[in-house]
């Protein structure tokens, strides 16, 4: 436990040290493992890269084209470099912290203008509790409350003294709370299906901006393809409500989206795994005119460590 706290403090201090550089909006990794709680004393470290690109306006569910708007968006993109640290407090309870750095959060405009922001993102912390397991191991359920800490910068300026637009800031400036419920069904001990539902509430930031609430429902399964190579198939539905600014509803905000996520995962050496996670939107419906996501792709490298085992090796026998 002391070791876990030490690791956690080290990671948070790293996070604070980087704060001065600048900072963005939460950008969590789409995990291929929504359900599993880490075993007691197990530590999981994950590093991931996420690239996202958008290049099209939508009005409702249809593509929208501006005829003459020199400062309409041509494309937007970002690279996100994240880390996730999970620790099993007991066999049924684990804690996870996730954050990272936005590199090149870019808006390119039709006439050649661009805006770029970089910086540390907000951090997410959540606790996952496995509260039910059926006797025959067919059903299992977890609940996961969490919160977002606004460690990212939401009012970054260029060196020339010009404030960057909200969309290229690396943080939201607002706290958020979330609650996730996940259910795993082991059908005839061959086929595992995981369903989850998450609700996220976003607070108001000091600039009086409030991002809309978000509901995410996922359905996923993992299929073993070849020895240590697995395919994770996931369908994700997201619905966000409208944003608010000074209590005024922003009409062109909020959407519904269905995303297909065919992730490929390979386990190698001992306790290492590498996952490639493409996210392809198959249906998007926006309130009014908004810029829509084209694709997102993530690569994640994970390592699970048994701290109990390590401490047994490192403490000399005579000291036990």
């Amino acid at each position: 436990m002391v070791r876990f706290l030490l690791v956690f403090v080290v990671m948070l201090s790293f996070c604070n040290n980087s704060y001065a550089q600048c900072c963005a909006q939460g950008c969590s990794m789409t995990s291929s493992n929504i359900f599993d709680v880490l075993e007691k004393h197990h530590l999981e470290l994950t590093g991931f890269l996420k690239h996202s690109n958008s290049n099209q306006y939508f009005n409702g569910s249809n593509k929208y084209y501006f005829t003459n708007a020199p400062l309409s968006l041509k494309n937007t993109s970002f690279d996100y470099f994240g880390i996730s640290i999970g620790y099993g407090i007991t066999n049924k309870l684990s804690i996870e912290a996730q954050g990272g750095y936005f590199g090149n959060k870019t808006q390119n405009f039709v006439d050649g203008a661009w805006l770029v922001g970089n910086g540390l993102s907000d951090w997410e912390v959540n606790i996952k509790y496995n509260f039910y397991n059926s006797k025959d191991s067919t059903w299992a359920m977890t609940i996961s409350p969490g919160c977002k800490l606004p460690l990212g910068n939401y009012k970054d300026f260029t060196p020339q003294g010009v404030k960057l637009s909200r969309d290229v800031q690396s943080g939201t400036g607002a706290y958020a709370g979330s609650l996730e419920y996940a259910c795993k069904v082991n059908i005839k001990k061959k086929f595992i299906l995981v369903g989850s539902a998450e609700y996220e509430y976003n607070g108001i930031n000091p600039e009086q901006y409030q991002y809309g609430d978000k509901l995410t429902i996922t359905l996923s399964t993992k299929l073993k393809m070849y020895k240590k190579l697995s395919l994770v198939g996931m369908m994700k539905y997201e619905k966000t409500s409208n944003d608010y600014f000074y209590d005024q509803e922003i009409v062109a905000s909020g959407y519904q989206k269905i995303t297909l996520i065919p992730a490929l995962s390979i386990d190698f050496r001992k306790d290492w795994s590498f996952t490639v996670i493409p996210e392809i939107p198959v249906y998007q419906n926006f309130n009014n005119i908004q810029f829509a996501q084209q694709y997102t792709v993530s690569c994640a490298l994970s390592k699970e460590l048994n701290l109990k085992k390590i401490s047994n090796h490192t403490i000399p026998k005579w000291n036990k």
């Binding site: 980087s18 690279d79 090149n104 050649g112 203008a113 770029v116 970089n118 060196p159 960057l164």
Partner: peptide, 14 residues
Amino acid sequence: ILTINCKKEGSYFP
């Protein structure tokens, strides 16, 4: 993470 080479923050207008 710290060695990531990012595009310099700022803006450009023709």
